[in-house]
Design a protein around this nucleic acid. Structure first.
Lengths: 120, 120
DNA sequence: CATAAATTAGGAACGATTATCACTTTCATT
DNA sequence: AATGAAAGTGATAATCGTTCCTAATTTATG
């Protein structure tokens, strides 16, 4: 694990948030100013493969990344795009029982308007 | 509704499939050879706004479109990318009850390997 | 140390989608 | 039919998140 990868992972674990690659770059550069965006993407992909990080694919915006990988789903504000955690609303097992077929995973996103956006 | 939009909608309603914008263009051009890809995208967006068509955002591939808009979810093959319909596994109402907040919608995709891909 | 293997920074390239724009088409009103 | 305004079109350029490329650097290993 390179120094760059360590910094990227520690940014993602520093708080419960769901930053984009750009936001990760900004924060990581505070500790490693020469870090390149390509390196961030490369390491995010590697970290996802190792299951240390979860990617949250966004429909009309840059993907977000989550440093907390216990199963949970996401609540997405349709106005500001911010992502919140919610407890798992599905399980692989329940899906397999319902579909009577092996399931590799699922992606559930619930859309709402966050309180901040609701008050303008 | 322009002739172009009619053709695009009828392609989407001609069978239960989930084509990309490119695939829609190919089929629509059989009836309207000069049709432009930009026009396909423009009309798909309009049809989605009118709730006549549903967009299926794909994580690592071009988005797909669905001409059947009754609530249902999707099963996605991680190998070939083909999309299958499944009955709704969630309802807006159930989500709102669980989350105790108004919900605008949800997007659930279940990943599996389709039988064809499983046999190589 | 030496050298092979892996990783990097930086920038170019890619690909799906959107924007732009000059030119039709549509259609309600004469 | 002629008009004019509004909406839609085809072609192409632009956008932008992400991936790829490459020479240079770092890391691992004997």
């Amino acid at each position: 694990m390179s120094r760059q990868r360590e910094v990227i992972l520690s940014v993602l674990r520093s708080q419960r948030f769901h930053p984009t690659a750009d936001e990760i770059l900004l924060r990581a550069r505070q500790r490693m100013p020469a870090l390149a965006l390509g390196t961030v993407y490369r390491n995010l992909k590697a970290l996802c493969d190792e299951k240390l990080v979860r990617r949250i694919p966004m429909e009309d915006a840059p993907d977000r990344y989550d440093g907390f990988v216990e199963p949970h789903d996401h609540l997405v504000c349709t106005s500001c795009g911010k992502v919140y955690d919610i407890p798992s609303l599905q399980t692989k097992e329940a899906l397999e029982a319902k579909l009577e077929a092996p399931v590799e995973g699922y992606e559930l996103k619930v859309y709402f308007t966050c309180p901040k956006c609701k008050n303008q």
